[in-house]
Computed example of a mutant assay.
Amino acid sequence: MSSPEAPARGGTLGPMAHLSRVLTVVLGAALGALGAWVLMKPASPSLPDTPSVVQQMRDVARLETLEVSLYKKVTFTPEPQATDALWKDVLNWARYALQNPHGRAIVFANAHLGFDFQRFDRSHLQVTGTRVYVMLPPMEVKVELRPGETEVIDSNLDSEQTAQLLEKARLAFEQEVRSNGKLQRRARESAERSLRALLLTLGYREVLFVDHLPAGTAG
């Protein structure tokens, strides 16, 4: 019996061998592309440490203060009754502290609304991955009179009494601003915009402003 002839050397490959070679080439190309992608992929940004974040937030918050111009006409004779409850203290002071007071004043002031970031520390932050919760510190209101524009007209007050009157007016302005919900919201929204922009720049992906931090370890 004659033995079967072996395939001639250098002959064409069978279909299975051809498929195997194609798969090997494709797999090699895929692995090469994957390796190149891993090498070229930008590294995930490392988030800064909490003390650094706190300091940068303080720096931004110092610049983010809402300023409002105010003015008020005040008549401090004994007869008229104050229609604004916040300003009754000014007229009552004039009525009981002065001898036959009379006159009027036009008082101008600037009010500054911002958050007291001197009290802001790592206990006001909670980080979970790239999400950060922020609990803002108490709001701070400061009122400064504008003496160059304030006028006291037809007054029988001496200089000390005039200074007392203006201080009472400043405190009344401060009370007025503290009770103004619209101004409080404007100041909060302005601060949140600036702080959110900062935190996103630092690498966080989600910034949530809350009244209380979620259960867990702050900072």
Rank of each mutant, 00 (worst) to 15 (best):
V141N: 07
E140D: 07
Q99V: 03
R122Q: 12
E149A: 13
A94R: 13
Y133F: 14
I153K: 08
N92K: 08
S155W: 07
K88L: 00
L136R: 10
A97S: 15
E144W: 12
V132G: 11
Y96A: 02
V134S: 04
A111Q: 07
P147N: 14
A105T: 13
P138M: 05
E151Y: 12
V127L: 01
D154C: 03
F108M: 02
F117I: 02
V127C: 00
F108N: 11
Q99N: 08
P147C: 00
L91I: 05
Q118Y: 03
F108I: 00
V127Q: 13
N110M: 07
I106L: 14
F117R: 02
N110E: 11
A105H: 13
A94Y: 12
V127D: 01
I106P: 06
A94M: 13
F117N: 00
R122G: 05
V132F: 09
T128L: 11
F120T: 03
F117H: 01
D116P: 01
R119E: 02
F108P: 06
D116W: 01
G103F: 12
R95W: 10
F120K: 02
Q126W: 10
G129I: 06
D121I: 06
S123T: 11
Y133L: 02
K142F: 02
A105L: 13
G114P: 02
Q99A: 04
P147L: 01
L136V: 12
A105P: 14
S155K: 01
G103P: 10
R104P: 05
R104T: 10
H112S: 10
K142Q: 02
V143D: 15
V141S: 05
D121L: 04
Q118R: 05
F120G: 00
I106R: 12
D121F: 04
L136E: 12
G129C: 06
G114Y: 05
L145N: 14
V107Q: 15
V134M: 07
F120Y: 04
G129Q: 08
V132R: 06
L125C: 08
L136C: 08
I153N: 08
G148D: 15
